[in-house]
Design a protein around this nucleic acid. Structure first.
Lengths: 336, 336
DNA sequence: ATGAAAGCGCTAACAG
DNA sequence: CTGTTAGCGCTTTCAT
């Protein structure tokens, strides 16, 4: 900016006013300064600007990793932000080894005040909710009470997914849970258990395990469930998210089981990979992009000082594709 | 920081030294200040810090959009950065309507100096190469001469992809090109033409069109090619990237053509979607994550003041899946 | 209509 | 060892 001022023969204050479209500068000077700015390719430094003015016009989205789930959310948020006068930057939790818990708090503290005016955190690692800047959480942690949150109806979705499997005729149904510290994971297991209870079926503890929402962590528990003796082995598995479900299918096939002939698999999320998978995955869809968009709208409302609904729960939808079928030898009931 | 200083009964300079692990502070004071910092949950402001010190410890990755291609690159870059003492943030080009060309230059100017120490730009929209900070380009623009770049061997890959189709027995092969302003797109078309020329087959102009690397833009040109009279219609199509190839398959099926029985389709990139697609896509793989990682390593080298190889070209690999087969009625040649 | 000066939160030089 | 001082690039009074 000093360069621009010198080159244009004016003070930095004048340049600043031109840059910020303040009035009180003669039109001829404005034009001249604009010209010099263009010639020099000058752009105001975001950091300095917001250090001084206390506003950056940028909001951050913190994700632990760039995987399909957070990427869909990101797409939705990026789409929604067009309607607002903010820019979006995504920050990934990087190594964050050692300080797993609450890394988002530390990062937000560091970024807020000079870099971002607010943030969206995806599947937070901790309950921390005292942030120095407006924050909206998507798929919140257990007990994240005071933060505005966006989530899907995990309980209802799990209930419906399980009911669907039951309606197909399955009775021995396995459940591969998510990350124990997340609300969504708890709700999905609760929904599963409720549906089973409603059907009067007791759930065998051997058929329930946890994959942490991660493919890698899902292999061993899945193998354990699928290598049970044939009479104890489930005819269907409900995986708490799509990436786990896909891994379940891969493990099943590696064990010589055909999907859906020998075993049905239903997922949760409906990430793009679910539809594209070789055996198109039947799954409970979350409106991921809408959720990202909704969170962004809420954040912008918060930033505008408006009141916002604190907790938004979006509906899930059953998407029937090819990974589920009635169990082998099942005769459908005749309702006529 | 002022709060911390007051609370700890020391000067801000002392706090700064503690924060930055400078020596010259008595161990007892260090411990005390550390305690206060922890109590207050204080984190230094990135903007102010780097405004003063001229270094932020953060590098940016600028992408036009979060789609599979850039996301894979992002994953690779995120992985590679763990070995360096930098953090990664991703910036998406947002609306960038109106100023399509060179938006990355404007953003980088704004971010550099206070926010990022360097950047990776993905499929840049312009030839601009005068950046105020170290920059590495992935999949560069035509004529981006002075910037260090990372790309794959698009020419060789296209040559091999086309040769593969020819080896299957195809003779009428269509080509759906990418974004005309990118080096990769030009190279892929050149590779395609070279392979056809090598085989002594003249390419029909009706069979060549452009999809801009985008599914949406690929629909109409694909339909035009596939609705040619049966004797002019190609038996195979080479699409310049996977997302276009998938769209080609969808259009083909909507026209009643079966893939690969009636028409073979080969893509380029090998994004995750290619493997997951209902008809697993045969494609020329780029080592996307490695490319992202390589670009990050180059950038970090640049930042360290080391010399770097200016232009890295990574090899491509044919990945045979299910979307290609010999043309109908083709009798394979007997080489015995 | 314009510029001088103060200060945002921080670090680096220098004094003590 | 510790505090004082200056100033990074910018915006914002407040004089002129």
């Amino acid at each position: 900016m000093a360069d621009v001022a010198r080159q244009a023969g004016v003070s930095v204050a004048t340049v600043s006013k031109v840059v910020n479209n303040k009035d009180g500068i003669s039109p001829s000077r404005v034009a001249h300064v604009r010209q010099v700015i263009a010639d020099l390719g000058y752009e105001a430094s975001l950091g300095a600007q917001s250090l001084r003015s206390g506003r950056s016009g940028v909001v951050g989205m913190l994700v632990a990793e760039f995987e399909p789930f957070s990427t869909e959310l990101l797409k939705g948020a990026a789409l929604a932000i067009r309607a607002h006068e903010y820019e979006l930057l995504a920050y990934s939790g990087k190594g964050m080894s050692g300080d797993r818990l609450g890394w988002e708090r530390r990062h937000i503290s560091r970024l807020s005040g000079t870099l971002i005016d607010g943030a969206i955190i995806v599947t937070p690692s901790g309950v921390d909710d005292r942030f120095p800047t407006p924050v909206v959480a998507i798929d919140p942690h257990l007990g994240t009470s005071t933060l505005p949150t966006v989530k899907c109806d995990s309980y209802g979705g799990a209930l419906e997914a399980t009911a669907y499997l039951l309606s197909l005729g399955h009775r021995r149904i396995g459940f591969l849970g998510g990350r124990a510290d997340l609300q969504s994971s708890k709700d999905r297991e609760a929904g599963f258990r409720a549906a089973m209870a409603d059907a009067g079926i007791s759930v065998d503890a051997d058929l329930i395990d946890e994959g942490g929402y991660q493919p890698d962590l899902s292999i061993s528990p899945t193998r354990k469930i699928l290598t049970l003796p044939a009479d104890k082995r489930p005819t269907a598995i409900f995986a708490a998210n799509d990436l786990s479900a896909i891994k379940v299918i891969e493990v099943a096939e590696s064990l010589g089981l055909r999907v859906p002939d020998d075993i049905s698999v239903i997922g949760f999320d409906n990430v793009p990979e679910a539809a594209l998978f070789r055996i198109p995955l039947t799954t409970m869809a979350q409106p991921l992009q809408e959720m990202g968009a909704r969170a962004m709208d809420m954040l912008c409302d918060l930033l505008a000082g408006n009141d916002v609904v604190k907790n938004v729960t979006m509906p899930t939808t059953l998407v029937e594709r090819a990974s589920c079928a009635p169990p082998a030898g099942h005769i459908p009931e005749d309702d006529s």
